[in-house]
Design a protein around this nucleic acid. Structure first.
Lengths: 347, 347
DNA sequence: CTGTTAGCGCCTTCAG
DNA sequence: CTGAAGGCGCTAACAG
């Protein structure tokens, strides 16, 4: 069948079709398409023209099979619908597409099992690299070890795992927490509660530590009664606040592990007619767009989400070019963003 | 090299390795792995055990090349960080994974050019289907036509294109708009402004039409001065409100094309100390999580985002099994969600 | 019940 | 400068 016929029937056009039409071999076509210098200018031109005319699309699958590279980066995040994660992904995509990579995005939905499944899927999809923020349930990291074993670049961000050595991009959670708690103290807060994330996750530990150390620096005793293990969701912020209120624990500030939780806290306090920041100041972590929607606007620690994605993808590119035995650990700075929800002075 | 050796060196284990070890042919192994009935129970068991022992991962690329199916669905959305889109994706993933498909997600970032690029990428990645919400810039649909030409199921959702026949999932935008504007009228609003989306997009047209018809039904003249072409972003809601205020146009309600815009409207009105809903009522469309964060809470039209994703993926599955010549057009119901931002009576 | 054979579409050595 | 040949890993006729 002629290339003309195949084209009209919407059949895939392959190297062979072009080769036959031009009476050259498929190797020549293949080389011409890559602008290989050893092919005559005439031939190269003719091949390109025909390819264009018949809208030749190289079969990426076949190419991958040979080259053992899919030009694909896998990304696993807990939940896509968090602004932080989707912004990180935008950063990843930005550098990935420029470098000719496509991105496969998967969600673990905060489920360990789902995470194992998608990591297996991505492994057999032969991604060239994997960028991950682990689910809150994850403790066992065996499913990631396989990527390292096969020398597939593996980069963790935000939620760094314990017990596995690899590349990572994170922010200085400790310092961010320290600064924001210190800010609360400067505002005159003395009984500052902390709603933590799941404590198997390093960032939750680090923020907790920053909280504790800031208190200690200012000679405020660390009181375990003021530390509530919470989570990352708005609903958990709501339930934890309700618990705190029924516990009748007296506090003058709440430092939530992240903005969604802080939003939950504020909604609950407002519902109970507790004045923010007058009665209780509230601060979060992330700088979600919602932080400027709630009234009063939320004081928080801004994370450079887009840059985190960029950094992660950059590490991937470095590792894929010259896979070194050493790992890159990048720690970005946070930015204390003061708004009304914590301002008790000068009002 | 023995399978043992290859395993230790973290080399890929293939069918051949297992076949050699068991002194059978690779076809037998291939069949055993698929639990083909014609293979002896003994052999099948032995193969599975060895596969497990050496952590055999089938090479999906090689399989795809032969089967001409990648078991992958491509998804293109304008922006991942909108709650609506990430929730639709969650719905798509849910049914896709259950049916053994993986999902590649791409963003167009509301750019026509980017949309063309990613659709080409997905085409050459040989996705088995494509689910799309088009960018606001997109008018030319040629890049999607290729999928139809190759009989690759194509499903549009939310932002339906014009000038291309295909499957689609949408909500009854007209009815949703009609209901919410009628609600405003019932609340005593007489001068209701509408901030539209880009009018090349059908849903923006439909919501506009619903707005107009609701007014007409209640004998309120449609006034073009009250119709502002806006967009889908919070920032556009802010600038459009500012324009309306400097225009000194008198209104008692604003119907925004979507919640992010409505949020921008409210933030601006609040900043100018205009009371919501007393001076101006505000309503949106989507039911973003932010709708319950802003004060007063936002009246809006809830869209079943997750179900939209489910419906789109279901259509894909139907089309992939028996690709029919007829297209499926599914229209889901919306749900008027009344909150404080529009309640002028009974207060 | 199992093996042989022949590709899927592409890329690259090796020969001219 | 170009062609022939082989193979990436898997699958499915077609034979036994």
């Amino acid at each position: 069948m002629s290339i003309e016929d195949r084209y009209k029937l919407n059949k895939e056009i392959t190297l062979i079709d072009i080769a036959n039409e031009l009476n050259v071999s498929k190797s020549t076509v293949s080389r011409a398409l890559q602008n290989h210098h050893s092919i005559g200018a005439e031939t190269t031109k003719a091949v390109h023209e025909l390819a264009k005319k018949y809208n030749y699309q190289p079969n990426a699958i076949a190419s991958s099979l040979f080259k053992k590279s899919t030009k694909t980066i896998g990304v696993i995040v807990p939940i896509l619908s968090h602004y932080f994660f989707s912004t990180v992904i935008a950063g990843i995509e930005d550098v990935a597409y420029k470098a000719g990579y496509k991105v496969i995005i998967c969600q673990s939905h905060e489920l360990y099992e789902r995470e194992v499944i998608v990591s297996k899927t991505l492994l057999s999809a032969k991604v060239d690299g994997l960028i991950v923020s682990v689910s809150k349930e994850t403790v066992n990291m065996d499913h990631f070890q396989q990527f390292l074993d096969k020398n597939i670049p593996l980069i963790f961000f935000d939620r760094l795992p314990t017990g596995i050595q690899s590349n990572s991009v994170s922010v200085d959670d400790y310092e961010g927490a320290f600064k924001i708690v210190e800010h609360l103290i400067e505002q005159g807060c003395k009984r500052i509660a902390h709603f933590t994330g799941p404590l198997n996750i390093a960032l939750a530990q680090n923020r907790l530590q920053g909280y504790k150390d800031a208190l200690r620096k200012h000679h405020i005793p660390v009181n375990d009664e003021l530390i509530y293990e919470c989570g990352f969701e708005r609903t958990q912020g709501i339930t934890t606040t309700e618990k705190l209120l029924t516990d009748q624990v007296s506090v003058d500030a709440i430092f939530a592990v992240c903005d969604p939780v802080a939003i939950g806290v504020m909604l609950t306090l407002k519902q109970k007619s507790i004045k923010i920041p007058h009665d209780i100041a509230v601060v979060g972590f992330n700088d979600d767009p919602t932080a400027t929607v709630i009234d009063p606007p939320l004081t928080t620690v801004a994370q450079p989400a887009f840059e985190i994605g960029v950094a992660a993808a950059d590490i991937f590119l470095k590792q894929v070019i010259g896979p070194s035995r050493s790992y890159i650990k990048e720690v970005l700075k946070t930015n204390l963003t003061i708004r009304q929800s914590s301002l008790r002075k000068n009002r």
